[in-house]
């Protein structure tokens, strides 16, 4: 698994989906993009998408290369995750419509992509408040490339994260 990523925070799910589309058109590897949103009542768009989902979500998600991240979530959470609200959107990009208790677990798994543990609560708060995260992970050059792209797509904020020799640290703060 890559140990660096860029995370864009978006006010709405459509804005986040548009950002994912831009990354696709830039030939950013689809299997390295993840869209995370909450299925809480304040996110009716996700609930709507979730209702369209099916059980293929888990297999698709793992096949898309995010199995390593999901693996940090407990088995029970993973089952519940699969059973509730994963939707494959035209490729290996998922919308995780996560029940409240699972939001922390899934967002917490971002540590595997180089996000410092002290930053997790920051992202968890965003997801729980109805915002959507676009995570693009990869090598340093891929992440810098994705960062330049996401900054143009009206994110609330964009941060690049990477793991160093001691622990994961945020290396850049390139807010929009």
């Amino acid at each position: 698994m890559a140990e660096s990523c860029v995370i864009g925070v978006y006010n709405t799910l459509p804005e986040a989906q548009a950002a994912v589309h831009v990354l696709h058109r830039a030939d950013f590897p689809p299997g390295q993009i993840t869209l995370i949103a909450s299925s809480e009542p304040h996110s009716p768009q996700v609930a709507e998408y979730a209702s369209m989902g099916d059980d293929s979500g888990q297999d698709a998600a793992i096949g898309a290369g995010i199995g390593g991240v999901l693996g940090t979530v407990t088995g029970a959470s993973l089952a519940a995750f699969s059973g509730t609200a994963i939707l494959l959107l035209g490729g290996p990009v998922i919308v995780g419509g996560l029940a409240g208790a699972l939001v922390g677990a899934f967002v917490g798994s971002l540590v595997g992509w180089g996000v410092h543990s002290s930053q997790i609560a920051h992202y968890e708060k965003f997801v729980k408040s109805g915002k959507a995260l676009v995570v693009a992970e990869g090598g340093p050059l891929e992440v810098v490339h994705a960062n330049r792209i996401l900054r143009e797509t009206n994110p609330v904020e964009v941060h690049v994260h990477a793991r160093d020799g001691s622990e994961a640290h945020e290396i850049l703060n390139l807010g929009s």
């Binding site: 548009a18 831009v22 990354l23 058109r25 830039a26 490339h145 330049r148 792209i149 143009e152 797509t153």
Partner: peptide
């Protein structure tokens, strides 16, 4: 506008 955003952000901004 959307097409232009995609074209600029994914290509020309680089």
């Amino acid at each position: 506008k959307e097409r232009l955003l995609i074209a600029y952000a994914s290509q020309l901004s680089l």
